[in-house]
């Protein structure tokens, strides 16, 4: 099926515009920016006493933020998009235009991704400005690598998480017919990824005494864990902080670990997106 960049661009802009008219999205963006600003400011304020403020420390707290907010943003936005259009009947009007179903899915994905990414950029950009204004790096502890490069890598990984969550949300959206159902499923998926999965795995690990290899790979099924591990690797250059599983990962995969994690995240983007395309190709507007 041919895909025209022009149509993707039109759909992307439309989706982006819709996102900025979506009060939930604005709420998420506002919350994300406020929290990112707050964290960097608190980090600076807390560090002012000790004389050591580090980008690494702030970014570490931003890991929490990304893990919590970004999937929520992407999943709910993605879930609301196609299911809502299907429910309102506007999907028929859209599909009745000379566009392919692949273009519709890709266009929506790109638009939503651009919207969520713009939130990320805004939040992290403001956080960086606050840190720069606070002189955070001038007294930063040595991190062994360029902290800014680490931060940008972190930002890239956060962007991947955004894409994963949008892709998942879109997948949920194409597989359901009603936006309420899609919203519910997306919230459950968020809960599963953020909380329940990890809690379950922690319990399993305690009971089954999983070794480092199995624990690592069980955890890495979760894209948020993939992000977290990759983000720690990017910010710190090592995974010692994650205990034996982290050491196992770095020693087993070495330099290939980051590409591996990024590939997994990309897979998490592509597979749901593929399912979305397959589903829309199969169902059409019905």
């Amino acid at each position: 099926m041919s895909v025209e960049a022009r149509i993707l661009w039109v759909l992307t802009l439309k989706e982006l515009r819709d996102a900025w008219n979506n009060r939930w999205f604005l709420l998420y963006t506002g919350a994300f920016c406020v929290l990112a600003l707050g964290m960097s400011w608190l980090s600076l304020a807390g560090a002012a006493g000790s004389g050591f403020a580090g980008l690494g420390r702030t970014a570490a707290s931003l890991v929490h933020l990304v893990v919590l907010i970004v999937p929520l943003m992407g999943l709910t936005l993605g879930a609301a998009s196609l299911a809502g259009e299907r429910e309102r009947g506007s999907l028929i009007l859209l599909l009745a235009q000379p566009v392919s179903r692949v273009e519709v899915v890709l266009g929506k994905f790109l638009g939503l991704a651009a919207a969520v990414l713009s939130s990320l950029l805004l939040g992290f950009g403001l956080a960086l400005l606050v840190m720069a204004g606070g002189g955070g790096l001038r007294t930063a502890g040595a991190a062994g690598q360029d902290p800014l490069a680490g931060f940008l890598a972190f930002l890239g990984l956060a962007a991947l998480v955004a894409l994963v969550s949008v892709s998942l949300g879109l997948c949920i959206s194409t597989l359901t017919s009603r936006s309420a159902v899609a919203g519910g499923v997306s919230l459950f998926a968020w809960l599963l990824l953020v909380l329940l999965g990890d809690l379950g795995l922690m319990g399993t690990s305690l009971v089954m005494r999983l070794d480092a290899r199995h624990l690592l790979w069980s955890a890495l099924v979760n894209p948020l864990q993939e992000f977290k591990v990759a983000a720690i690797l990017a910010l710190r250059g090592g995974l010692e902080v994650l205990g034996p599983a982290g050491l196992y990962a770095t020693r087993t995969y070495g330099e290939g670990l980051m590409p591996l994690l990024v590939s997994l995240l990309v897979l998490w983007i592509l597979v749901p997106l593929g399912i979305s395309i397959w589903s829309l190709e199969r169902r059409g507007a019905q």
Binding site: L13, K14, L16, R17, W20, L55, A114, A115, L117, S118, S119, L120, L121, L122, F124, G125, L126, A127, L128, L129, M131, A132, G133, G135, G136, L137, R138, A140, D146, P147, L148, F151, L152, L155
Partner: peptide, 23 residues
């Protein structure tokens, strides 16, 4: 590196605003 931070932060905000304003 701190000045790089400032420039990067500004660039990120600018990119976000451009995305915002694109439609």
């Amino acid at each position: 590196s701190g000045s790089g931070l400032l420039a990067t932060g500004a660039a990120l905000v600018l990119m976000a605003l451009l995305l915002w304003l694109a439609p």
